[in-house]
Simulated assay, not measured.
Amino acid sequence: MSWHKGQIVTRHSYGHDLLFRIQKTYNNQAVIFGENFRLEADAPLDDLRRVKNEERHKIEQQVRQKEATSYRMFRQDYYLRSFRDYAKPTSAKEEEVAQFQLCPKVLHIDGDALFLKKCVMLYKRLGLQVHGIHVEEAEMPLKVRELMEKVQPDILVLTGHDSYSKQKGEENDIRAYRNSKFFVEAVREARKVEPSLDQLVIFAGACQSHFESLIKAGANFASSPTRINIHALDPVYVIAKIGYTSFMEKVDLYDVINKTITREKGIGGIETRGLFRIGLPYLKGLPITNEKVKDDE
């Protein structure tokens, strides 16, 4: 049986629970990436099974339902606590002065080009300004400082693929993780540029990542507290919540994590201030005006 990059497969040894795509093959082994979750693994070729289109569509439909639920939760929250709740005019005279909104700038560095594309589309759907750059996980510590200096972000996302291997060590040993050490090193490099947890908000990690090390290194939010797989779009919902919370308020930790797909088992964080600001008066040419989350499914 011939195998090639991009084929959609499942693993027999794991009960065909998740969809993967083949990244590369070598010596009767394959490096596989989760199709919807940020998991990277090695698998024997004889453990893989090609997925028929009908089966793939059925599994992806279930995943899309979870994605739609998270989006609806965010959209509902957005309108319940809309821009009108910030700096409400207190008089008729004040109502005549048009306001503008200033959303934070996001730099999203991702080890998976396809996931990055999905995330950028969702950022834009949510009305956030983002610079998305594909960088392999091992290169992130080497490139993050240069990219930060170029983009000058308010929020930094460092994600891609990861996994924990019992054969390589205990859960508390970062050497037992495929890419956690690179995420940790990249966070440390970013904190050399901006140490403040409120001036630069960082999300870091992927499936099964070493949560404790990422938080200690300086991430505001990270994965994965219980070493489970996180959904490809989970980082975006965390960032959106931060981006639409006023800088006068703290982000509600329970609320932001509840809006992700994998929730507290997959995502955790520390108290963080919001980064959304309003200003006045509105003048043509200001960077952000009255943009709204698209009202679609």
Rank of each mutant, 00 (worst) to 15 (best):
K5F: 12
I8F: 06
Y14F: 15
G15T: 05
T25N: 07
T25V: 15
Q29H: 14
F33Q: 05
F33M: 10
R38M: 07
E40Y: 11
A41N: 09
D42F: 14
L45Q: 06
D47T: 02
L48Y: 02
L48K: 03
R50S: 04
R50K: 13
K52R: 12
E54T: 01
R56H: 00
R56Y: 00
H57V: 00
K58Y: 00
I59G: 00
Q62L: 00
R64T: 00
E67T: 00
A68G: 04
M73F: 04
M73I: 02
R75I: 08
Q76F: 06
Y78G: 06
Y78M: 15
L80G: 06
S82N: 15
T90Q: 12
E94G: 12
E95L: 13
L102G: 08
C103I: 09
L107R: 01
H108A: 13
I109G: 02
D112C: 08
M121A: 08
G127L: 05
Q129C: 01
Q129N: 15
V130C: 15
H131K: 10
H131D: 13
E137I: 13
A138Y: 14
R145I: 15
K150H: 08
V151N: 07
L158D: 11
T159E: 05
S163R: 13
Y164Q: 02
Q167L: 15
K168P: 12
E171W: 10
N172T: 11
Y177W: 10
K181H: 05
F182M: 04
E185P: 06
V193L: 10
P195D: 13
L197F: 13
L197H: 09
Q199S: 11
F203M: 04
F203C: 11
F203D: 06
G205D: 00
A206C: 14
C207Q: 05
C207H: 05
C207V: 08
H210T: 05
F211P: 11
I215A: 10
G218H: 03
A219R: 10
A219T: 10
N220R: 03
N220V: 00
S223T: 11
I228N: 13
I230E: 00
H231M: 05
L233N: 08
L233K: 05
D234S: 04
A240Y: 06
I242H: 04
G243I: 03
F247V: 13
K250N: 14
V251Y: 03
Y254E: 15
I257C: 01
T260G: 03
T260V: 02
T262G: 02
K265D: 10
G266K: 05
G268L: 06
G268E: 09
G268C: 08
T272S: 13
F276G: 01
I278A: 09
L280D: 14
L283Y: 08
K284F: 12
I288T: 10
I288A: 04
I288P: 03
T289Q: 12
D295G: 08
D295A: 12
